[in-house]
């Protein structure tokens, strides 16, 4: 095997890894889960359910219904925007309207 120079940093790592290998291979201590785990996780679960029930009706809707509602609102908003920016003149351009002077306004 090729001998590594004494100051080669790789040598340091390989020594540490060799020492750590048996320690890392050991399984964790076989301790049972603490008894309060079950009580705590069930309490968390109940709290999450209560939060979901008390949340806005929006979150109570299923995903598809939420998507449909959102796209309808978006389409309506687009329509309002388009209609508000279109000038009435564009539609009456060719109409035979009298000139302003002809109206003889006071």
């Amino acid at each position: 095997m090729k001998k590594m120079p004494r100051n080669d940093p790789t040598r340091d790592w390989l020594r540490i890894a060799a020492e750590a290998r048996p320690q890392l291979a050991q399984p964790p201590p076989d301790e049972p889960a603490p008894a309060w785990f079950a009580t705590r996780v069930l309490a968390d679960r109940r709290a999450a359910r209560a939060r979901a029930a008390g949340a806005a009706p929006w979150f109570a809707l299923p995903g598809l219904a939420r998507a449909a509602l959102a796209s309808t609102v978006f389409a309506a908003a687009c329509a309002v925007f388009v209609l508000s920016t279109v000038r009435l003149d564009d539609f009456v351009e060719d109409a035979d309207l009298p000139e302003l002077e002809e109206l003889d306004l006071p």
Binding site: D8, P9, T10, R11, D12, W13, L14, I16
Partner: peptide, 12 residues
């Protein structure tokens, strides 16, 4: 090879 050198240098 690179990682071993990197880790060794960190140790140094």
């Amino acid at each position: 090879w690179r990682v071993r050198r990197k880790l060794g240098k960190t140790a140094q």
